[in-house]
Amino acid sequence: MLTAGIDAGSLSTKVVILNQDKIMAYEVLATGIDIGAATKRAMDNVLEKAGISLQDVESIGSTGVGKKKVPYKSVQGTEVVCDTKGALYFYPKSNGVIDIGGENCRAIKFDAEGNIVDFALNDKCASGTGIFLDAMAKALRVKPEEMGELSLQSTEDIEVTSMCSVFAESEVVSMIHRKVPKNNILRGIHKSIASRVVGLANRILLEGNVIIIGGIAKNIGLVTTLNELMNSELTVPEKPEVVGALGAALLARERKE
């Protein structure tokens, strides 16, 4: 059975094609201002990659903040449900997920059967999310994908104390003016985000086999800092940014069955 999963996120749109239990193809692209158009583009690309047409897809699942604007008839699922399904697909022994998205961050605890035991979402504040990291990357004039490696070369522990992303940016700019090395600032930024995320995880007493997903999971500096603060070993799946979309596909398949 061919199923598609769409994760219409605030910053990026992800589509996955699933053939039985195997990921055939996936696509990740920027959402921009038109969620419908972004989803369609992502779907066209992924269908081409998989060498199939939309008619071959038996069911579609959708999740993410833009799920209601997806231009396909789809089974809708919350991010909490889809993240859980996606996490268990990659790691059946996992019992929790930390998902750091563009504007959202969530921690989810579940049992072996996939029952959601507890979850916590960030509030409307952007600190602790991908968009915060993007703003910091701009302020420091580094590429987002380079932030992780650079932060690992830090020589001093510094604190970014502002909880508000706008004030944190001012704080970072002031550090740049004081000639604080970029590596150290980046380490401070990661610590700031990580402490927010850990706070969320602690709220639901999350521990054990936890996986981290979302595009931010590719940032080795942040994952390292999170591991230090959580005193754990978070697992990063092979395709952390498409776990939610995969979960949506699994949800659609379940409903179809």
């Binding site: 449900v81 507890d118 979850f119 409307k124 709220r203």
Partner: peptide
Amino acid sequence: PTSIFDLDGLDIREYDDVTSKANLDSFVES
């Protein structure tokens, strides 16, 4: 189970409809 999230019952300036409903959706679905 209990789901806890931020919501000021009086200060409408603090209200975030998307986040509040996302919390409710997730909780009720689970």
